[in-house]
Computed example of a mutant assay.
Amino acid sequence: MTAAADGPQRTDARGARRGASASSVLRAVLDEGPIARSTVARRTGLSAAAVTGHTAELLRRGLLRELPETGKRGVGRPHVPVDLDTGRHVAGALHLAVHHATVALLDVRGNVLVQHEEPHGGLAAEDLLARAAEILDDLLLGHAPDREPLGLGVATGGWVDRASGTVVEHPLLGWKNVPVRDLLVGSTGLAVEVDGHARALVHAERLFGHTRARESVVQLFAGNVVDAAFATGDTVHHGPRSAAGAVAHLPVDDSAEPCRCGRTGCL
């Protein structure tokens, strides 16, 4: 009875460790590729056998590729570096701004391959998201017909509940409790992640930016909305339902500037 109960837990734990180890291999290649397997082992602390196994799986999945052998070695296995395979997959991106939506395709190094900006003129949420899905489909057919889409990332202002993929409130768009992830999963068939744009920028910085950014980074966004996010200890922080205090309507001393909320002197 105990063994039966422990079995799935142990299996899950092993799977989580394998996933973390494969991620560390991919992280090393993203940071330093092209890179030899032996160097990956030194950077990650994994055994040579583990690196070989994870690399083989990542090659099979089309996330890595082998490059021609560099240099000559007298003994041992040839020095065959690996790098990210930027020609097999694309990631979709959608930014929902106040006056327009931007849809883009990126490779696995975060390079923008193509993007399209679409004014939306205050379309209803469902109509705007349906139009964004159509644009994404057109971009995939027109610019990446032979590539496999990995998923779609969505960023916008306002209060975004990342766990449920919901825009809880975006006053400038007039949105309340819009299930963005569910609507886009239904129209695209892709895995979809939704977050506020400040946190999305922090994630991007930690993924593609300088290695020190993973330890501690603060992002301040100032535009039609004011937003901020931060990461410490290798973690991007989220409040309950990804909520945070709003600063837009804090009073500014000696200001009579009218605000769209009906008051004056708002920040």
Rank of each mutant, 00 (worst) to 15 (best):
M1I: 11
P8E: 04
Q9E: 14
Q9F: 11
G15N: 14
A16M: 13
A20S: 12
S23C: 09
S23Y: 14
S24Y: 06
V25F: 02
V25H: 00
L26N: 02
E32Y: 14
G33Q: 06
P34W: 01
S38D: 08
V40E: 02
V40L: 00
A41F: 01
R42P: 02
R43N: 00
R43P: 01
A48V: 15
A48F: 13
V51A: 01
G53Y: 06
L59R: 11
E66T: 15
E69D: 11
G74Q: 15
V75E: 15
V75I: 14
R77E: 02
R77Y: 09
V80K: 03
V80T: 15
P81V: 10
V82T: 06
V82R: 05
L84E: 08
G87K: 11
V90M: 10
G92C: 15
L94T: 11
A101W: 03
A101H: 07
T102H: 11
L105H: 01
N111E: 14
V112D: 08
H116F: 02
P119K: 03
G122F: 06
G122M: 06
L123S: 10
A125V: 09
A125Y: 14
L128N: 03
A133V: 07
E134N: 07
L139F: 02
L140E: 00
G142L: 04
H143N: 05
G153S: 05
A155P: 04
T156Y: 01
D161N: 11
D161V: 08
S164Y: 01
S164C: 05
T166Y: 07
V167I: 12
V167D: 01
V168I: 14
V168K: 01
L183V: 15
T188S: 05
G189N: 10
A191V: 12
V192S: 00
V192A: 08
D195Y: 05
G196P: 00
H197M: 14
A198I: 03
R199E: 08
A200Y: 06
L201Q: 14
A204R: 11
E205I: 10
F208Q: 02
A213H: 13
S216W: 13
V217K: 09
L220P: 01
L220W: 04
F221E: 06
G223W: 10
V225F: 00
A228G: 13
F230N: 06
T232I: 10
D234N: 12
V236Y: 00
R241E: 09
S242F: 00
S242V: 04
A243K: 08
A244N: 07
A246I: 13
A246W: 09
A248M: 13
P251F: 06
P258G: 02
C259T: 09
C261W: 10
C261M: 01
R263F: 03
R263C: 05
T264M: 04
C266N: 04
L267W: 12
